[in-house]
Each structure stands twice: as C-alpha cells, then as structure tokens.
Simulated assay, not measured.
Amino acid sequence: MDRYYWGVDLGGTKIECAVIERSTDKCIVRERIATESDQGYAHILNQIKLLIDRCAEQLEQRPLAIGFGTPGTLDPRHGVMKNCNSTALNGKPLDKDLSQLLDAQVVLANDANCFALAEAHFGAAKRVKPNAEVVFGIIMGTGVGSGVVVNGKCLYGCHGIAGEWGHNVIDPDGAPCYCGQSGCLETVISGKGLERFYFEQSGVELSLPEIVERAAGNDLHAQATLARMSHYFGIAAAQIINVLDPDVIVIGGGVGNIDVLYQQAQQAILPHLFNGELNTQIVKPDLGDSAGVFGAAALVK
C-alpha cells in the first residue's frame, strides 16, 4: 500500500494537490497551480501532470492512486464528464485520460461530495460524532449542492447524481432554475435566492451579509427573508432525515455562516419529521477552503 494518499482539487482557476501521510493523516505536501482552462482540455491535463510531477519530486515517490474533486460529475453510464462549469471538461473521459497520463488509479467526485467526505474524515462530523454512519454535507452559497457519505465512502447512485438536494422543487410557484424546473431549493435558500427575495419584498438590492446584519436590527423585510430561509430549510432537511437519517449534517457556504439557521433548525425541522425528536447534529464545517482537496484525498484513503 502507498505510504501516502493524494488528492487534487480541480477548480476553474486553480488546481491544488495535497499529499497526506496514511499513518498520521497529516498533510505533508500542498501545492497549487493555475488551471488556465481557457486554453482547453489538453492544457488542463498537462497542468495537472505538471502539478503531480512537482509534488512527486518533493517526495521522491509517485502516487499509485489519486482522488480528484471535479466541478461536475462523471456520468457512470457513458463514462464522460457532465454538468461542469469548466466546460472544456464536459463530454470528456476525464478519469481514463488522467489515469493514462499519470499512470495511477484515478477516482473522481464532485466538489460537494468532496466537501462531505472531508468533513466526515477530518472535520466537523468526525469531531462531533467520530463513528457517524451517515454524513450529509451541504454547500449553501451561490447555489445549493450536497454530498452523502455512508460508512466513510461517497454515495454516487445509479445516475451519479446522489446528493442533488438543491434541485428538488420546494416552491412550485418559485423562480425558474437553470436546470429547467421552477422553485428548486437552490432558487429559494441559496445566497442568490435570499437576495432576490429580499429585493422583491423591499425594492432594495443588498448582499446576503447586509441582509443578515439588517435582520439583527429592525428591518422587517430582512427578518422575513431569514424566516423564510429557515422554514424551507426545515422542510427540505426533514425530507433528507426521513430518507437517510444522517448522524450529522454539515452546512458550508455563505448561507451556512448564518447563525439563525442553526438556532431555528430544531423548530423548523421537527414539524415535518417522521419522529418525535431530532437527534441529528447540524453543525458548521471545520475545514474551510481545505475541504475540497482533503475530500479528494479521502477518495483513495
């Protein structure tokens, strides 16, 4: 077995690699390089190889397996990438091409899965419940994404879309979503969704931090925006708990920084829960920007 496990966070602007010592879970090498995705798919692959070569030179050892966090999903049926905002990756057999280029086993997962995996293995979920069977990780920022970790492993599903919590309709009369539906959870409780609702109520454009600040004062529109957020989060979280019954829910992203979300979680979830009490722990993440690359490494842990 390799002494180390390797992870790469493949982003639109940067590619980051972390090498973690297997015996201690200590990160011993961490490097990054520009993606330069505008130069095309082949160039992205070459940048990844350059980064791996640099890290391997420091360790005087090449990886046997590498986990990659990607800005999209590998379609399990067709074997190509889909739904990538780095569009040069779409339609490409990224795992096969990387495996051949790097002469290593390659495992891919999207950024939300890597976030959930990182917090399960190294972060908040491990801290509050080290033996958690099921961890549900949520990224609530500009959009809403999520990942499911069961017994330390990512759940991918038949179509590779396990954890697409943000694209379930929560408000049938809500705003249109880029996915083709209207009133998706992403359009309602994402940062952009909250800002849009505040504007619709007040006629004033504010950023999410400004809305949160005003809600602490006497701005009724801001208070209504956060109350609506808690209400819909409670319904949607209860659905996840009823189906998966996770031990821990970790909430990252800008919306995940809003304290009222945690303060009101119990009363927002319980009316919709098929249980008389709520024991799932709902917590903020521990790892911040490190989650992507650490989660990628955990894919091959």
Rank of each mutant, 00 (worst) to 15 (best):
G137E: 02
G123T: 06
H121K: 14
Q105M: 11
V106S: 06
F115E: 01
K126H: 15
V135L: 13
G123C: 06
A125Q: 07
G137I: 07
A132M: 11
G123F: 12
P130W: 12
F122A: 12
A120E: 13
V106Y: 09
L102D: 01
F122C: 06
F136P: 10
D111K: 01
F122W: 12
K129T: 13
A124S: 11
V134R: 06
V107R: 07
F115R: 04
P130S: 15
N110K: 02
P130F: 11
N131Y: 13
V106R: 07
A118T: 10
V128M: 10
A112R: 01
H121Y: 04
E119S: 08
I138K: 07
A109N: 13
R127C: 08
P130T: 14
F115Y: 06
G137W: 12
A118H: 09
A118P: 10
A109I: 02
A120G: 01
A132H: 01
H121F: 03
V135F: 01
A109L: 03
V107Q: 08
P130V: 11
C114T: 15
N131V: 13
A104P: 01
A109T: 04
R127G: 04
E119Q: 00
Q105E: 15
N110F: 03
E119C: 06
E119M: 11
K126M: 15
A125N: 02
A112M: 03
N113W: 00
N113L: 05
H121W: 14
A124T: 01
E133C: 06
L117R: 03
I138L: 15
A124L: 01
N110H: 08
A116T: 08
V106K: 07
D111C: 03
K129W: 12
N113F: 03
D103W: 04
V107P: 08
G123M: 04
A132E: 03
F122I: 06
G137S: 04
N110R: 02
F115T: 07
A104C: 09
A112L: 00
R127D: 10
G123V: 15
V135M: 14
L117T: 03
A124R: 11
A125V: 14
A112T: 06
A124V: 09
L117N: 13
H121L: 10
A112G: 07
L102V: 05
A124F: 04
E133V: 11
G123I: 11
D103S: 14
E133D: 09
F115G: 02
N113G: 05
L102N: 05
V135I: 14
G137D: 05
R127E: 14
G123N: 01
N110I: 04
V107F: 11
I138P: 03
A116E: 03
N113D: 15
A118G: 13
A109P: 13
V128I: 03
D103R: 09
F136T: 12
N131F: 10
G137N: 05
K126S: 12
K129R: 09
V135K: 04
K129V: 12
N110Q: 03
L102A: 00
N110E: 02
D103H: 14
Q105V: 13
A120M: 10
D111T: 02
E133I: 07
N131W: 13
H121P: 09
A118F: 05
I138F: 00
A124W: 05
V135C: 09
E119L: 03
A116I: 08
N131G: 11
D103M: 10
A112K: 01
V135W: 07
K129D: 10
A120S: 15
K129H: 15
H121T: 14
V134P: 05
V135Y: 09
A132K: 00
P130L: 12
